[in-house]
């Protein structure tokens, strides 16, 4: 599972390199305007299109064009690796969610306690973090307020969002469950949300790792792996 995330990020990046344009709605291609163009591959604005003129019936509107540029495309392995790694995220992830719900882990450790979640305390925690005034975790592993909120956001919102938007891009799955296709406003919207949710996850990983290091790397690693803190 720990390996699946970097595998997903790297393969996802390679897939995005193939068509580094993001759109909103169902449709987006090189002949329609993009929401965002990322200069991350030779395919960025390659301009290798030969117009073949308007189609028979929709004169003036939709056009067709033939691509004359040999694009960068490593999607053969990148797509297969992406979907293989996704299994290693989705299956243990589902087990974690079920276990967390039934063992009371979420209730005890992730849910902010009664009276804990006040704007005042949240603000203080944010300010403390920004000033890098991070207290080493106390002996019994208790998450801080901001930490709880972040974990809840990642576990219950952003990670499920990447999975759902991923499924919403599948022609077979959206045929079976059309609601998925419409939930995010279309195939291209799902793709765009998928990208930004991943950006959030990568940022989370960076901050999370920095915090682990800052709050006592060795002790935290021991706590994560063996579950004991001295």
């Amino acid at each position: 599972m720990a390996l699946s995330f970097p595998a997903l990020v790297v393969s996802g990046y390679v897939i995005l390199m193939c068509h580094p344009r993001l759109y909103w709605g169902e449709v987006g291609n090189d002949l329609t305007p993009a929401l965002l163009e990322l200069p991350i591959s030779p395919n960025h604005r390659h301009g290798g299109w030969e117009a073949t003129g308007p189609f028979a019936r929709n004169g003036g509107g939709p056009v067709g064009a033939t691509r004359t540029f040999v694009i960068f495309n490593q999607n053969s392995w990148a797509r297969s690796l992406h979907f293989l790694a996704a299994w290693f995220l989705v299956v243990p992830g589902a087990v974690y969610l079920l276990a967390g719900a039934f063992t009371g882990h979420f209730r005890r450790h992730l849910r902010p306690g009664v009276g804990e979640l006040t704007p005042r305390r949240l603000w203080r925690d944010v300010v403390d973090h920004l000033r890098l005034r991070i207290r080493p975790a106390p002996g019994r592993a208790r998450y801080g307020l901001l930490q709880k909120c972040t974990y809840c956001g990642v576990v219950f919102a952003v990670l499920p969002l990447t999975v759902l938007t991923g499924l919403a891009m599948s022609p077979a799955i959206t045929a079976g469950y059309p609601i998925l296709g419409r939930l995010f406003g279309g195939f291209q919207s799902a793709r765009t949300v998928h990208f930004f949710a991943t950006v959030v996850l990568v940022l989370f990983l960076l901050v999370h790792t920095a915090m682990v290091v800052r709050s006592g790397f060795l002790r935290q690693m021991r706590a994560m792996t063996f579950g004991r803190t001295p």
Binding site: V27, L31, R57, G64, A65, R67, P171, A175, G181
Partner: peptide, 15 residues
């Protein structure tokens, strides 16, 4: 698979 209206037809690249 979802079917659209003729008015939804868009530009179509050929590769």
């Amino acid at each position: 698979a979802r079917e659209y209206n003729p008015g939804d037809i868009t530009a179509f690249p050929a590769i």
